[in-house]
C-alpha cells in the first residue's frame, strides 16, 4: 500500500464517503474557529454515524464525547448546530478544553 493510500484511509472525509456508500446515516463535525491554544486546527473533521461510531477529531479527545452525543440528534433532525467549547470547569464537571483554548464546531448531517 502506498503512503497516499494510507493517508486516504485516515482521512475522515474519505471514511465518510465509504460509510455513505454502505448506506449509513452520518454527521460531520468541523472546527470552524479557534481561540488561544486549540488542539486541532480550523478545518479539522470528526465524522460520526447514528450508532456513535466515529473517526477523526476536533480536539485532542477533550470534547469528542459531547460532539458525538449531539451528532446523534443532528442525524435524526437534519438541522445543523453550532457548538462552542471553552476552558474545562472541573468543579462543574463541564466538558471543555483543558489547554485553555476555545473552539467553535459546526455540526451537520450528510445529505
Amino acid at each position: 500500500m502506498s503512503l497516499s493510500e494510507q493517508a486516504d484511509i485516515r482521512d475522515p472525509l474519505m471514511i465518510a464517503e465509504g460509510w455513505m456508500n454502505e448506506g449509513r446515516d452520518l454527521a460531520i463535525a468541523t472546527v470552524v474557529e479557534t481561540w488561544g491554544s486549540a488542539p486541532r486546527p480550523t478545518g479539522s473533521h470528526l465524522v460520526i454515524d447514528a450508532e456513535g461510531n466515529f473517526e477523526g477529531s476536533v480536539s485532542g479527545g477533550c470534547v469528542e464525547g459531547a460532539v458525538i452525543a449531539e451528532a446523534i440528534e443532528v442525524i435524526e433532525s437534519g438541522k445543523p448546530r453550532m457548538l462552542e467549547f471553552g476552558v474545562a470547569d472541573e468543579t462543574a464537571w463541564r466538558v471543555g478544553l483543558s489547554c485553555g483554548g476555545k473552539i467553535r464546531v459546526y455540526l451537520e448531517r450528510l445529505g
Partner: peptide, 23 residues
C-alpha cells in the same frame, strides 16, 4: 453537507487538486 460535494471533494483530493468547501 451535500453528498455530491463530499464525493467531488474526495475526487479532487485523489487527483491532487486544491479545492475549497464553502459552507
Amino acid at each position: 453537507m451535500d453528498p455530491h460535494v463530499l464525493k467531488s471533494l474526495n475526487a479532487a483530493k485523489r487527483a491532487r487538486e486544491a479545492a475549497v468547501i464553502v459552507t
